[in-house]
């Protein structure tokens, strides 16, 4: 029996390269799109997992999926060049405006219909444009499966269970789970280097484009109408502090000024 893995990807703007318009909105034209760096981590684990359990003579099939505009096909070809066996693009005007809840629903609908016998879902821990880290957990709930988030390492994999390292920054845990399982990768490795065969395959692959009907989506659960959250306003952070500006202070005087403040702060605590 084939062991089926689904890798969920997101195309994101390169947030290191954001330019602002005069009205404090993000200038979208010319903004580079990249695979969300954490999703590279998910692809890396998919490859590692496949390598590990292939040694046990088990067939593995990795399906990559993304929801996005037509241009997102580009990241799916990259995913194939990194070793995924096939890819699907979920693309429909009706999907636009999806928040994390609607996204989790849409992806889980796809998985239920196209890879119903999946064993493992891999996602990035979070996307660098939103940083919410909600979609993986939300999706695991929609599929009623176990989840391990903040994963930094794969320790052991076989057809019955796998063992992963979770690192939240506060604690490290070694976690074992059977299947089906969702794993959210918290690593951002360098983009993987494709093998020549995979690269050729990626350029010739036919990537099916699925719409809302294809995944049997309930229209009230997708896109704007399926997204409960509303962005009321967006603005740049501003500070309401009254700044005392000191220019042309020699370093020694600047140091005295700072020491005074340190002492003030300490004295306040003594009282």
């Amino acid at each position: 029996m084939t062991f089926k893995i689904v890798v969920c990807l997101k195309q994101v703007p390169d947030t290191n390269d954001i330019k602002w318009t005069e009205n404090n909105t993000i200038q979208r034209e010319g903004l580079d799109s990249i695979i969300n760096p954490y999703d590279i981590g998910a692809l890396y684990f998919a490859k590692e997992f496949k390598r590990t359990i292939s040694e046990r003579n088990i067939d593995v099939e990795i399906t990559a999926v993304t929801m996005g505009p037509n241009q997102s096909e580009e990241i799916l070809r990259k995913a194939i060049s990194f070793g995924c066996d096939r890819a699907y693009l979920l693309c429909d005007k009706k999907f636009s405006g999806s928040d994390t809840l609607a996204t989790a629903y849409t992806l889980s609908q796809f998985i239920k219909i196209y890879v119903p016998d999946f064993k493992l879902i891999l996602c990035g821990q979070q996307a660098i444009d939103g940083d919410t880290a909600q979609t993986p957990s939300s999706m695991a709930e929609k599929l009623s499966i176990a989840q391990i988030t903040n994963v930094v390492e794969l320790f052991e994999a076989n057809e019955v269970y796998s063992v992963w390292e979770k690192d939240t920054g506060v604690k490290k845990e070694t976690i074992k789970s059977g299947y089906p399982l969702l794993v959210a990768a918290a690593i951002t490795p360098e983009p993987l280097s494709p093998r020549i065969n995979d690269y050729i395959r990626s350029q010739n692959a036919i990537i099916p484009v699925l719409n809302a009907q294809d995944i049997n989506a309930n229209l009230s659960c997708i896109g704007f109408s399926g997204s409960p959250t509303i962005v009321k306003k967006a603005f740049r952070h501003s500070s309401d502090r009254n700044v005392a500006l000191y220019e042309n202070l020699p370093p020694t005087e600047a140091a005295s000024l700072i020491i005074d403040e340190i002492n003030k702060c300490r004295n306040k605590n003594d009282i």
Binding site: P13, T15, G130, D131, I230, K232, K233, R236
Partner: peptide, 12 residues
Amino acid sequence: TYGGKLMATITS
């Protein structure tokens, strides 16, 4: 949001 480059106020 956006890598901390923008603040967003959100309701539901």
